[in-house]
Structures are given as structure tokens and as C-alpha cells.
Design a protein around this nucleic acid. Structure first.
Lengths: 162, 162
DNA sequence: TTATGGATGCAAACCGATTGCATCCACGGT
DNA sequence: ACCGTGGATGCAATCGGTTTGCATCCATAA
């Protein structure tokens, strides 16, 4: 359901820095290395697709902590640039752990049937984004872009059109 | 703050069908033409940028109705294809009235400072979207895309970079 | 070892949005 | 022009995701 596409690997999502390296980053910014934080980072490390606060909380297992703590820590990690927040338009925030030096800017292809997620490499409208910024005098322009569709498994019985 | 760019008009947002034509569309789908509905359509007609339920409710004036009625009617209008829902990522739904025959697919450039909105004509990643769909076997692929940045008025005192 | 400020647990609050239910009224049928 | 009916509305309760106030706890530096 959420296995990466084998023919078109997305390496930036598969390799992950070890936990110690992550906690070291916490230490370097004088944030405390607590049990909930380590557990949350461990969960994030194991997931290559955006994951919700609730899913993180559920995946903590024995290292359980309060849901509010999960929310607070994801804010902290986001502020520190260690995770990136994604919005699939369903009113639930999702997060991905970032590699060192990666700003995490990429997009997803989400199945509207089963919620399967494909990581999309590359970013398209960069030139158009700059033209847009210039035209309207905007600065620091970025964008949010996500794709939605039906995955092969969820394709309708009588396939209509592409 | 929200005046359309004069050098690059966005006609699809400026002309609007008369109210009678809108209510006629309601009648044709056997929905009742009620006072709240007319008032809501009138408000939508006057706004060329996406507007929230709460903003619509506030703009009703004398034709006031319950906020829940606004929510319900926007669902109805969306189902009928008369309005399109947009998501600026702040957890609040926004709506635009659609022209006859327009599916409303377009994007926005939103100022993160003052929330000014510029309508963006044209749609970019169509070819890439199809390539993406093909590659992963997805069908009926669409996308959500919105741009964010700082408008000229909100540009920082010491401008950094584009 | 200590003290100190950040982190946590718990519960309440918040906010956009939805819904159950009684009442109301727009509209087709007569 | 009048009825009857089912959709529409008002009101209040509810829901789900998220945030926050506060007392307590504990990771870290001194």
C-alpha cells in the first residue's frame, strides 16, 4: 500500500541518519533529549511517507507519551528544520523527517481511494514561480503542490479515462 | 489589498452571471430558491477572491442567516458545481463562484503577511501530471497548487533576496 | 549533588465544521 | 388560490484536530 516504487526509487526518503545523529542535533540547539523525543524521532525514522500526529502517537508502543507532547514536539522539530509539514487537504497535518541539509521541498501523489502515497521527486514550476513573483512584485515566493488520483488497486472496475 | 492586477487582468474572475441566472440553475436542479441562498450567492458574486464561510456569513448584512446554513449551502453549491473549494493551508475552506462551464481549476498567489490574493491564470504541470500518472499507474490525477509569498506592501524593510 | 528552566501529563479550551431535530416555507399539484 | 410535502433553516449539541494553562517532573549545566 505504501511501498516505494521499485523501478523509480526515491533515495531521499530511504536513507536516514542514525538516531544518535538526530539527538545530537537536539543537543546542539540546547533542547533536552527526552524519552518521548527519542521515541518520536525513531517512529519518524521508520516512516518514509508523511505521518500524522495521531499515527506517530499510536506507533510509539511502549514508549508511550501524551498526544499533546507529540503535537508539541512536532512543532519543535519543525521550528528546528528537522521535519517538514505537509498538507493533503484533509485537515490533518502530516510530517516527514528531513535529511541533513535537505529543506524537504517535494510533493506527493496521493490515492484518493486508499490513501497510498508516492513521493514525487523534482519540482516543476520553479521558473513560472519566479515569473509570477516578478510580475506581481512578490518576494520569497514558494508553493504547495500535491497530486491526487486513483492508484492501480483502486482503479474503477470499468476504467473510464486517464 | 485585493484589487486585481490592472496590467494582467483575470477576466474569469471579473465578469459574473446575474443573480437570476444563478437561481435559475438552482431551480433546474430542483433546489429551493430561499432567501439565505440568494443572499449567499449575492455575496459570492461580489467577491472575486476565495472567501470563507465566516466571511460570507458576516457579509450577509440584513439577509442574515445561521452560520450552519452557510456551511450547508456551500456544500450544496459545491456539489452542484456552482462554487469551487480552495485550501490555503490555514485550515479554513474558501470558496469562489464559478462561471457557467468553468470547472474553476486555477491557482492563487497569497501574501503570507496581509493575506492579499492574486488570481493566477494558466495551469502548469499538466504534462508532468500525465507523466506522473502514467509512471505510477494512477488514473484521474489532479493537483492542488497554491503560491505563497510577500506582497510589495509586506516586503521586509531590508529586502533580502527574491 | 543541586537548582533551574525546559518538557511532560492531564484536562480544559479552541476552532472550523458537522449533525440531530423540531419547525418552517418554497413549490408542484390540485 | 390553497394544500401538502419534502427540502431548508435555526438552534444547540457534537466532533475531530489542535492548542494551552498549570502543576509536576527531570535532563542538563554548574
Amino acid at each position: 500500500m505504501s511501498s516505494p516504487c521499485s523501478r523509480h526509487p526515491h533515495p531521499h526518503r530511504l536513507i536516514q541518519q542514525p538516531l544518535t545523529e538526530l539527538t545530537e542535533k537536539l543537543r546542539s540547539k540546547s533542547r533536552k533529549i527526552t524519552a518521548p523525543r527519542q521515541a518520536i524521532l525513531e517512529v519518524l525514522r521508520r516512516h518514509q511517507h508523511p505521518i500524522t500526529n495521531k499515527e506517530i502517537h499510536a506507533a510509539l508502543g511502549t514508549a508511550d507519551c501524551d498526544l499533546a507532547t507529540v503535537y508539541r514536539n512536532l512543532h519543535t522539530l519543525e521550528d528546528m528544520g528537522m521535519v517538514r509539514r505537509f498538507d493533503f487537504g484533509d485537515g490533518v497535518a502530516r510530517f516527514e523527517l528531513l535529511e541533513e541539509g535537505d529543506d524537504g521541498h517535494h510533493h506527493h501523489l496521493v490515492c484518493t481511494g486508499c490513501s497510498a502515497v508516492v513521493e514525487v521527486d523534482g519540482c516543476f514550476p520553479t521558473e513560472l514561480e519566479q515569473a509570477l513573483a516578478r510580475r506581481h512584485g512578490f518576494t520569497r515566493v514558494t508553493h504547495k503542490l500535491e497530486f491526487f488520483g486513483l492508484c492501480p488497486k483502486c482503479a474503477p472496475a470499468a476504467p473510464a479515462s486517464v
